[in-house]
Every structure is written in C-alpha cells, then in structure tokens.
Design a binder for these strands. Structure first.
Lengths: 214, 214
DNA sequence: CTCCTATCGATTATAGATAATTTATGATTG
DNA sequence: CAATCATAAATTATCTATAATCGATAGGAG
C-alpha cells in the first residue's frame, strides 16, 4: 500500500500536477488514497530518500525544487558513474549492440520530431541499458538513485537542449561498445553528458570540469 | 525518535553485536527502546535504503550479508566517484592540504600499529574530506550512501589488507592535490581503491577492470 | 508413508486516536 | 504604537489496537 502511494505521488510529480514547492499533507493524501497516515508517511520518506521531496520536522513535506546547480552536480556525478559503466559493459556488449541501436534510432526519431518527452524516455532506456550491462548492481542502484527520470524531464521541458546535436553522440558510443573498447566508450559517455549541460555550466560551474570535458 | 532508533541500531551493527543475518523484530526493538512500532519501522526503512538491512514483506528485517562480490562492486563504484571528487577538489585544495596530511599521519600511525579500527576511521576521514572539498553535494550524498563505514570495517576485520602497503598510497594523492593537479589526484585515488581490493577481485571479478587499474 | 489441507503462532501492515510542535493571530502591556 | 506573550488552529509524530499474511505443524486422506 505504501508502495502504491509512492507510485501515485511519483506520477503526479512527473506529470507536473504536483509542481515543485507543492505541499504534501499526510492526512489529506491518506484520505484521497483511501488509506491511513502510516503508509503515506512511508511513501514520503522514500521519496525523500530519492531527493524528490523535502521534509522539515513538524512542518511538513514539499516537492523539491531543482536548481541549475543541482542539475550540474547531478550530471557530473552521473558522468563519473556512466564512464565506469561503459568500461565494465563493453566486454559484455561486444558484438551485441542491436538493442542499443534500436534505442538510438528511437532517440534520433524523437530528436527530428523535436519531441522532448519521447527523447527523454528513449535516452533513459539507452543509458540505463549500458549501466545494467555493467553487471554491477551497486552501480545500477546508485545510478537509479539519482532519479533522472525526474531531472531529465524537468530540464528538457525547459527547452535548453539541442536535441539533434545531443542525439548524434550516441552512435560513436555504440561503435566503441560494439568493438569492446570500454575505455573509449566510457570517455564518450562522460563527454556526452558534460556537453549536454555545457549551457548550465557556464552559468554556475567553476572552470575545472569544463576544460576537462572539451 | 526514529532517528535515535536508527543510530542505536547502526551502532549495534557496527560493533558486531548484531551480526549479518541477525533478525530485527519491530515490536521487540520498540520495547527495548521504550517506543512504539512506528518509529522503529521508519528506522528500519532508512537502514534498508542504506543497504544495511534487508526486509521481506510480512517476513521481517535482517542485517544484510556483505559478499565479496558486493565489496568489489562497491569499490568500483566508489573509485569512479572519488576520481571525480579528486578532480573537482584539486582547485580548492591547492596549497591547503594541511588537514589531509594530519589524517595521513594518523593513517600511517594506525598502519604501523596494525590497528584496523583506527585505520578505518582515519582513512574514512581522509577520503570523505576530499569528497567534501569537491563542493558537489550530490556527489557527497551519493558517496555517503555507499555506507562505507560499514563495509570498510566488515572487510578490514577480515584482515585481508596489508595496511602498510595501502597507507603509502595517500601521500602522492596529497601531493597531487597540493599542486592542484586534479587529473592526477583522481587517477591515484581510483588506483588506490582498485589496489585495495585486488585480492577480492582475483576471486570474483572479470578481467576488464583489473587491467585498467594496474 | 507421502501429500495435501486446516489451523496456530508469530510478525508485519494498517487503522484510528492521542500527544507534541509549529505558526499565526490577537490580546495585553509598557 | 511596538513588543511580548498567551492562545488556537493545523499538522506532524507517536501510541495502541486490530487486521492481514506467512511459515510451521499437525492431522487426515490416498
């Protein structure tokens, strides 16, 4: 039951029905979902662990605001994780990149249609698949915890990304993985992510990383 | 109150009083701590999020077992995060490595006394400090979530590490940071962690990473 | 003797009610 | 009029009690 509440809140936040800053009152949600305070509390605490919600003692819970700084930091972290994922996944994906190519096609299609929603979905599939194929469960869990389903949507929704430019990055990554060249795949993945936030970076970043990525 | 329960359980697990596999019965803990089931549930769910405890629905919670495979995966992930941390922290630590040297001295002292407990404490301080100085809060949180306080103790307790050999790695890292050479510091940090689990790796790993680290 | 089923004990999961805390509002005093 | 303090409303935090579920065990049928 706690899980159903969690999923429901998750959907409502993703859809924008619950915007950043929205208040989440435990008993009110409990009434809406035909349950009691306990399960709602659990759900909120899990969303808090995912950094989707913030709670202040005796004050209540709110949908978290995501700043440019947060996005930058999250992408830097994600870049470090995916670089490793690429290295680890390459031996397992060598000569077996059909699925990745399918997702890359879908990404290209979405980019040409300028359809941010589809782009986000297939881009997530693409990257998550590589992390899965690293065969490192802790890496996968850590990656999931960054909860990019939220961040990527919130951010693409702002229309600051050139989908067609970013889309092109995926093909060399597939090629490197197909050859089993993990080092190259890792570097390209990291670079891909760093390029993707170059604009945000200019606004809030410090110089060390920007240079390294280019 | 939930937080106090969490801390108490955490301590009892760290001390070994609650060994891996030990059962954690909600009402029983509640009685011991003079509280009720609710706060205990919350505490258990937080420990579950930290991967310290596993819960099966309607069955109960247990202290988690940590396998060699888990340790390897966690260290790989940690290596990726600390490499980034080193890169980001270098500009901020350039010419300001006094604190790190202090911790490195303490690590050396513990290694010479072959005192795993002290070694673990100061090694944690050393590494965490670098992650803090990355000034990337999401990176820090992600790193913390790997809950190495537990893993490092569980593992050092097994006495499979040559403390004096591992200790020596810290000084070149400090030198690189002191020069502001983030790339080098990052590489050394990753290497340091990969060396540290080389033995475990031989048993369970696949070849890709071992080569890259040497 | 084996397999299936009903029942029991233990424990988690949920509900409902109460206590504790915070914020805002309004009264009181200097 | 400003500042302080008491009070009330709203909400979280906790407690107690009940329901739901699981695993084991015992009893009976084949």
């Amino acid at each position: 039951m706690a899980d159903r509440v969690k999923q429901a809140l998750f959907r409502r936040i993703l859809s924008g029905e619950l915007a950043p800053g929205a208040r989440l009152v435990e008993l009110q949600i409990a009434r809406e979902m035909n349950t009691s305070q306990g399960p709602v509390r659990e759900a909120l605490r899990e969303l808090e662990a995912l950094q989707i919600v913030v709670t202040e003692p005796y004050r209540g819970s709110y949908v978290r605001h995501v700043s440019d700084q947060d996005t930058l930091e999250a992408y830097q972290t994600r870049g470090a994780l995916e670089r490793l994922a690429g290295q680890l996944a390459a031996p397992f994906l060598k000569g077996r990149t059909q699925d990745l190519r399918k997702e890359a096609e879908a990404i290209r299609s979405a980019a040409r249609r300028n359809h941010a929603e589809d782009y986000a979905i297939h881009d997530m599939n693409f990257h998550r698949r590589i992390v899965e194929e690293s065969r490192n469960r802790i890496l996968l869990r850590t990656w999931d915890a960054l909860s990019f389903e939220i961040r990527i949507r919130l951010w693409l929704a702002q229309g600051r990304v050139d989908l067609n430019a970013a889309e092109a990055d995926h093909w060399p990554i597939i090629d490197a993985l197909d050859r089993g060249d993990g080092k190259k795949a890792g570097r390209l993945l990291r670079q891909h992510l760093m390029f993707a936030i170059a604009d945000v970076k200019g606004a809030v970043g410090h110089p060390a990383e920007t240079e390294a990525a280019r």
